[in-house]
């Protein structure tokens, strides 16, 4: 009983914090998107969740080339909380003598902290060439940056608010793993001690595991449509997951194709163990060996580094536990139904 309450409480926590905590301020667009050297240009910056009027007078805007070369706006004016005007005197040439270069835009103020829009502004060389390095590039380096205080989720371009799907799409794969692990465990137990009860438990866990796998796949497709442009882009994780789910669908077809229940249960148990043995490489090994659109999929483990920051972890881990307990709860109902079914001598 306690774990069912825990599941509900953790899911309530996940939904509440997952939906209500705001995103960190960020830069949506910068216009115009290009300019010539030696020009004076006024950029209009539109922010997301920003409070430009609060930082009036303290807002600094840079266009950066790399860590060392940056130009600071000499006049910054907040038109509204989300609109900012920044006037730049563009330098005479590019740091390494290129003809054109795409610069990043950095906005910093005490209210919002630092926001970056990569590849925001294209700087082109005008007709007059100048050989020597323009010192304006090093006059105002990017320094003394502010950090936004408070509980917020990271702002990422293209993804924006859908970063919250981390609490709804990603845990599906953890639930799938735990449920299918339970299923494989009951299959092993069945082979050691062939009681029909263990076999029906293995099948019930595989069923909910498959349900959560399909939900993960479908929610992933919806997210992919708006983040990657296509619902199905033959990403390595999409392919291997589809293969893994088909393997488990075949498990149910195998189960239903036997006339003798005992023989069928034995063979399906063996198949289920092999299915789980292929699931692990398909979901956790093969995707790391290819380029993927999924974050954290290549090389280092998915939990490492910048894909998940600490504010997100505070919701992500409870979300995993909450969804997993829900998965086990649903399975326990199915097992109880199966037990009655077996007592009555089967349905079919």
């Amino acid at each position: 009983m306690w774990w069912k309450i825990t599941s509900v409480l953790l899911l309530v926590y996940t939904f509440t914090l997952g939906m209500l905590v705001p995103l960190r301020p960020g830069i949506l667009t910068v216009s115009p998107e290009s300019g010539l050297t030696r020009q004076s240009t006024v950029l209009t910056i539109s922010g997301y969740n920003a409070h430009f009027t609060q930082g009036e007078g303290q807002t600094r805007v840079w266009l950066t080339y790399d860590d060392e070369n940056a130009i600071l706006a000499h006049r910054v004016k907040a038109l509204s909380d989300t609109q900012l005007e920044a006037e730049f005197q563009l330098p005479a040439n590019l740091p390494k003598g290129e003809a054109t270069m795409v610069l990043n835009c950095i906005v910093d103020n005490p209210a919002d902290g630092t926001s970056v829009l990569p590849n925001a502004f294209q700087l082109k060389l005008d007709s007059t060439t100048m050989q020597e390095y323009d010192p304006t590039w090093k006059a105002h380096p990017v320094e003394k940056l502010n950090v936004k205080k408070g509980f917020t989720y990271p702002y990422r371009n293209v993804i924006y608010e859908t970063i919250r799907n981390t609490y709804f799409h990603v845990p599906m794969w953890f639930v799938l793993l735990f449920l299918l692990l339970a299923s494989a465990t009951y299959s092993v137990i069945y082979l050691l001690n062939p009681k029909p009860e263990y076999d029906s438990k293995a099948s019930a866990y595989a069923e909910t595991g498959l349900l959560f796998g399909l939900l993960g796949l479908v929610t992933g497709m919806l997210w992919a449509h708006y983040a990657w442009g296509k619902a199905w882009s033959n990403d390595i994780k999409q392919i291997t997951t589809a293969v893994a789910l088909l393997i488990y669908m075949a498990y149910f077809i195998l189960r239903s194709s036997f006339d003798e229940p005992e023989k069928g249960a034995r063979l399906s148990a063996v198949y289920n163990i092999f299915a789980f043995a292929t699931l692990i490489p398909l979901l956790y090994v093969v995707p790391r060996m290819f380029a993927s659109l999924h974050p954290g999929a290549t090389g280092s483990p998915a939990f490492g580094g910048q894909d998940l920051d600490n504010t997100m972890r505070a919701v992500f881990y409870p979300a995993i536990i909450g969804w997993t307990l829900l998965g086990f709860w649903m399975t326990s109902l199915r097992i109880r139904a199966k037990r009655i079914e077996d007592k009555l001598g089967g349905l079919d």
Partner: peptide, 20 residues
Amino acid sequence: GKINVVVGVILLLFFGIVAY
């Protein structure tokens, strides 16, 4: 900020579980 994609994802989960 594409918030309705999140709403869509939650609805899909809800309907999937209800179907079960």
